[in-house]
């Protein structure tokens, strides 16, 4: 069993990543001179990583302003989406796990799951309609007389954050739900009986208990948000670029797989490192996530 899992991991995950890693340290001979591929000049180089940090040789700036700033903006936005999802999903997960009963709980779970039968692209375009100039939200706000001009939710990236946030709520809700469900109700009642306010009960009893679930939820949402492509492509404002879009451009329109690989690897390693640091700060061990 363990052997099969190991084989699976090696074939499906490790090997392709190793190819990408190998790519990222090579020149894009495909475009420069395909005949030199595999020849004596085809050696490992840091040129792609150098480009991400400093741009082309004739770049007047001290570093690659566009790519680096998009990179950090993407990470920051992913953190924001994660926190937003946590704030939204913790109450839902808690309600599902501790308060809701029987049919009501099942109905709520269905209401959470069924929208995800709609595929990602369709959902993203639906959000565009929802948040567009003549979309449902603007129409409603204007109909109520709250605003006179439609708000450009797409330009302000509200649509993007909403779309990304919504895309991953299940990944946040279910890990938290799983853990909180196993919390003995008496613990909550005992804390309440000893005089704790709702806030205090959550801070001292429920959240510490739910920490493994919160961590695994946050990790998944953060990783997936930072690596999302469709939602930023469709819902992102004209001025906003997601780092994945740059990667995609290198791979696709740029036909520069080595550079795309380098960018993708930097994104992946940064995300992993970031998650590990946050886990260290909140004193969560990696083994706890698996629970």
């Amino acid at each position: 069993m363990l052997g099969a899992v190991a084989l699976w991991i090696i074939i499906m995950i490790v090997l392709p990543q190793l190819f990408m890693l190998d790519f990222s340290f090579r020149n894009n001979w495909q475009q420069i001179d395909p005949s030199k591929m595999g020849g004596p000049e085809d050696v490992y180089t840091l040129v792609n990583y150098h480009f991400l940090a400093f741009g082309s040789p004739n770049n007047p700036d001290p570093f690659n302003v566009v790519d680096v700033s998009v990179f950090f903006r993407t990470i920051l936005a992913a953190v924001f989406v994660t926190l937003f999802d946590l704030a939204l999903c913790y109450p839902i997960a808690y309600y599902l796990a501790q308060a809701a009963k029987g049919a009501k709980a099942r109905l709520l779970v269905l209401a959470l799951i069924i929208p995800f039968w709609v595929n990602e692209l369709l959902r993203a375009f639906a959000f565009r309609i929802l948040f567009g100039d003549e979309g449902t939200i603007n129409a409603a706000l204007m109909g109520l007389g709250l605003i006179e001009q439609p708000i450009d939710f797409v330009r302000e990236n509200v649509a993007l954050y909403a779309g990304l946030g919504y895309a991953y709520i299940l990944l946040m809700i279910f890990p938290i739900y799983n853990v909180v469900e196993s919390l003995d109700k008496n613990q909550i009642e005992a804390a309440r009986d000893l005089g704790a306010s709702w806030w205090k009960i959550h801070r001292r009893v429920v959240i510490p208990f739910a920490k493994p679930g919160i961590t695994s939820g946050c990790t998944m949402v953060f990783m997936l948000s930072a690596g999302a492509l469709a939602a930023p492509q469709i819902l992102g404002g004209p001025s906003s670029l997601w780092f994945t879009q740059i990667i995609y451009q290198w791979f696709n329109t740029g036909s520069n797989w080595p550079r795309g690989s380098a960018y993708a690897i930097v994104l992946m390693l940064t995300c992993v490192l970031f998650v590990l640091i946050v886990m260290k700060i909140f004193k969560v061990k990696i083994g706890e996530i698996g629970r």
Binding site: D184, N186, Q187, E189, A190, A191, R192, D193, L194, G195, A196, S197, R204, V205, P208, F209
Partner: peptide
């Protein structure tokens, strides 16, 4: 229950597993 002059000892005790003994006791 948090404002009554009563304290309840539960059948399964419901001690807080993530707190030390003294933190449990002084929770109130």
């Amino acid at each position: 229950p948090n404002h009554r002059p009563t304290a309840l000892i539960f059948q399964n005790l419901a001690l807080f597993p993530l707190m030390s003994v003294w933190e449990n006791i002084s929770f109130a």
